[in-house]
Design a protein around this nucleic acid. Sequence first.
DNA 1: TTTGTCATCTAGACTTGGTCTTAACCCATC
DNA 2: GATGGGTTAAGACCAAGTCTAGATGACAAA
Lengths: 143, 143
Amino acid sequence: MEKTTDKQCLDRREVIDLLHRHGVTPTQQRVEIGQMLFARPQHLSADQLLAQVNSEKHHVSKATVYNTLNLFARKGLVREVIVDPSKVFYDSTTLQHHHFFNIDTGELTDVPLPILTMEQLPPLPEGTVAAGIDVIIRVRSAD
Amino acid sequence: MEKTTDKQCLDRREVIDLLHRHGVTPTQQRVEIGQMLFARPQHLSADQLLAQVNSEKHHVSKATVYNTLNLFARKGLVREVIVDPSKVFYDSTTLQHHHFFNIDTGELTDVPLPILTMEQLPPLPEGTVAAGIDVIIRVRSAD
DNA sequence: TTTGTCATCTAGACTTGGTCTTAACCCATC
DNA sequence: GATGGGTTAAGACCAAGTCTAGATGACAAA
């Protein structure tokens, strides 16, 4: 039996609902990007996503991919992962979790267990409120 | 009474020793960069450092600043902090510690307490060894 | 001193991820 | 059909960082 998460792309309908629920007007391009991105838990750069979307029949411009990813991030649909100085990754899973980053291969994977949650924060600097926690465990390929 | 950490620049001699201890040949430019950078615990971008070094009498080229910072990082003299997608910060303190990053102001500060150490790591991905941990607590200015 | 060698430095060209601009487009409402 | 706000596309643009090729400097051997 085939699980829905194994599909290459999500159903248009599902994505449209998802966008609606987050207050994002579901345009043609946004839905197409969402179909690729939310198909399964993954970490994609804007570049990868651009290539992937455009390998399909439709074409979406670079500007639109960047705009859409920024919009999605602002609306809480994806999470930016800043780990490689040369590019941002977009994580299709927004549930609080952490990352392994392989500095040799550039591979980004999820830490399966919670380590540190918003409840265990140290005292914050004067006049600030918490916005999120990023935990990145840098690893190297054992040779 | 004046503490040594209040000095604007370190003594040339101190920096030369530091470089030697880390196996870095102390050239004119490297020492000058080190004098600024290691004067006190701080987080500087390459740009800031370039400007700061060149506000003094001597001139150091952009390429040299970048090369030197990369060399220092490789040799364990500074730590790269990847937190802002648009630029890398270099931390003059290499002791294990974590950061607050104010997403409104771009300000990067140290978390005074240890939170997570190399001893408390979860199981790493197959075939990898730990290289470091980055914990970034993103905060927003309370308005 | 001179010469040779090697590492380092510089200026500026180049690369590249990401943003900005401007005109075209879509689509709902009048 | 006309009007207007939000969206998109193409390509110009920007800036952090890298690369290149020639110049400089330090040091060792002669």
